[in-house]
Design a protein around this nucleic acid. Structure first.
Lengths: 218, 218
DNA sequence: ATATAAAGTTAGACTAATCTAATAAAATAT
DNA sequence: ATATTTTATTAGATTAGTCTAACTTTATAT
């Protein structure tokens, strides 16, 4: 049996190790707002349970089983977010903290029903992929807007690290998934982008913003 | 701040004391499947917090504040049950354990949205009243089917103490809220009722069953 | 290459929620 | 009216999850 708290550690470790396959005690602690010694002892416990690979002073990795369990929690989180937006009328900036709680509900039928009512979606409201029932997740193809060149046209695929505040900012600029925009100009000194889309003839987007928008060229 | 566990104690105490205004340590323990000493110390803690009135060896009562808090938890539980049945397609026998988990979600917006999507219902899927946002609950008017006489016709208003098994039994007899039935006969020795409704020309209902159906005469 | 800083670990304490065993009070039955 | 049973309380142990303080190892910077 995996406790709610353990589930949170697995989820954090999964997300932190998406890029390089492992994460440090320090990173996990920062992410979860928990002190290192607590993380350390929890990692030992999860290692006992066969969910992570722990070796002193080394970064921590998920075992195949740990990875699957983590993916299934993320699946519940993202299905929930999608349900809250699509079926309950919440904004994409309102759903994260509610989904953080609902992801721990123990009822396969509940999440199966959500999945069914949504028509088995592959992405959440922020464009992040939803792992399948076996914990398999296909990472989103696409590049960061910050990597694009002036003159290119792109479509927005996903928001990376979308805090509620950032999503609210995007709302204020009428930026949402699927939006098409054209890159007019990039400032040399700070990489600020000038882009145009729909009503917005020239909007300025900071480099920080551009690094958090995943797009495809069109 | 009231913990999830404390919320469960308040809820149990509220429901147990609905009839006579108080409940004993023993009753609470039985209800929650928790040993008496644990209940005892929790009651002292809740008394510290001003949520219950605790005096050694006396039955325990909720304070006005405790009563309101408890009613609000029950509100969340019952709104959730209604949502699961009305908006997600669950059967009334499937929703209790899911709602027991969702009732602890901390998000006023979440439950307000549910309430709104349901059109501000006054009853849950089992006919139990839903407390309003201030924790006020109007108890269901009605009498037990077991108190009715042969020849009378009644409409089913609510299921009392509806365990999943009992609700599944009612499903098998095609008995649901709003159903009208006529009492044909009552056996003297065991109070078994013979009733008729819709396709069912004579169905036998044990006294145990009849005590759990709240009805109004028509 | 060594000093310093950062990250990781160990030890020990604390809180919440549970338990068992022992004792005390209240209720019940003869 | 007293003995017995049931209920309630106290005392003390246990587990999960957290912390701080002290120490160790690894990484970084001059």
């Amino acid at each position: 049996m995996i406790s709610q708290v353990e589930e949170n550690y697995l989820k954090a470790l999964y997300l932190l190790s998406e890029t390089n396959g492992s994460a440090t005690v320090n990173e996990i602690g920062k992410q979860m707002q928990i002190k290192m010694p607590t993380v350390n002892s929890m990692m030992k416990k999860l290692a006992e349970k066969g969910l992570v690979v722990y070796e002193s002073y080394k970064p921590i990795k998920l075992t195949p089983r740990g990875k699957k369990e983590a993916a299934l929690i993320i699946r519940k989180h993202r299905l929930t977010e999608m349900f809250l937006v699509e079926k309950m009328g919440f904004g994409w900036e309102q759903v994260h903290s509610i989904a953080e709680q609902i992801e721990h509900i123990r009822s396969a039928e509940f999440f199966n029903k959500i999945d069914e009512l949504l028509g088995y979606p592959h992405s959440d409201p922020h464009g992040s992929p939803i792992p399948d029932i076996n914990g398999k997740m296909v990472p989103k193809e696409g590049i960061k807007l910050s990597e694009c060149k002036p003159g290119e046209s792109v479509k927005i695929l996903a928001v990376i690290h979308g805090s509620d505040e950032f999503l609210t900012f995007l709302n204020s600029r009428e930026i949402f998934l699927g939006l098409k925009m054209k890159i007019k100009h990039i400032e040399n000194f700070d990489k600020t982008m000038l882009v145009s889309y729909t009503k917005h003839s020239t909007t300025t987007l900071s480099h920080t913003v551009c690094e958090r928008l995943l797009v495809e060229k069109i």
